[in-house]
Amino acid sequence: MDSAYVLQALINGIMIGGVYALIAVGLSIVWGVMGIVNFAHGDWLMLSAYFSWIFYMYAGLDPLISLPLVVAIFILFGFANYKFIMKRFIDAPIVISIVATFSISLIMRFGAFIIFKPDYRLIKDHVLEGVYRFGEFQVSRAKFATFLIMIAALLLLFSFLKYTKTGKAIRATAQDRDVAKSLGVNVDRIFLITWGIGLACVAVAGTMISTFFYVFPMMGISFLLLAFASVALGGFGSVHGAVFGGIVIGIVQQLGGALVYPAFKDVFVFVIFILMLMFKPKGLFGKY
C-alpha cells in the first residue's frame, strides 16, 4: 500500500467531509440558538437537491447558477418553517420539538414520494463534470467545488456572526436567551433569521450534492446520520465544531474504508459518535 493511495484517500475524506460539515453547520446553529434538534434537516437537504434538479431540468440552469436562487428560496422556507410551525414549539419540552421536526421530516419525505415519484434523478453534463488531476492524484470537480463553496459560505457565515449587529445578537441569544431579551434583543426575530441561516446552509449543501449524487426522496437519511455524528464530535451548538467534526468524520470514513475495509467505514464513524457521547457528551467544542 503506497503513500499515494493513502494520500488519495485522505483527499477524498477532506472533500466529502466538507459536504458533511456544511450539512452539520445548519443543524448545529439551529440547536445552538434555539435548542431544537432538527430531524427534518436531511429532508430539507433532499428538497434543496430537488430544487436544483428542477432548475436544471426545466430552466436549463446549471447548479452553480441556480445555487443563489435555491439558497434564497430556502431562506424563505426557513422563515416560514419558523413562523408557521416551529415558533409554536419554542417553549415546549424538547421532546415535543423533536416529534414536531420528525413529523415535518416524514411529511416532506412522503410528500416527495408523491410529487416526484421514487425515481432517481441525476444532473448530467453540468459544468462540474469530470475530475482535476494533480500528478497521480485526482479530485472530483464537483466535490472540489463543493469544498471551496463550503469554505466561502462558512467564511461568510462567520463574518456575519462576528461583525454584524444581527450576528452578535444571534450569538448573544445562543449564550443566554433571557439575558439577550432583557438587553433588548428581539429574540423572535433572531429565531426567524437563525432558521433562515440553517436552511440556507443545507440548501448550499443540497444543491452541490446534486452535482455528484442522485436525487431521490430518501437521500437525506444517509447524510443526516453523518451530519449528526459530525455535530456530536464537534459539539452541539458550535458552528466551527460542526465544521471540524464534518471534516474529521469524512477523513475517518475514507481512510478507514481504504486502509482497513470499506464495510467498516461507517463503523469507525459511529464508534467515534458513541465514544464522544460516553466520554465527552458536549463534543470537542460544544457548550451544551
Binding site: A9, I16, P262
Partner: peptide, 20 residues
C-alpha cells in the same frame, strides 16, 4: 472483494480500493 452498505452516501473508498 468489497462488501458495502447500499445506503452509503459515498462509495469513493470502495472504488479507490478496487482501483488499487
Amino acid at each position: 472483494r468489497i462488501t458495502y452498505s447500499r445506503d452509503s452516501a459515498d462509495l469513493s473508498a470502495e472504488v479507490l480500493r478496487m482501483e488499487q
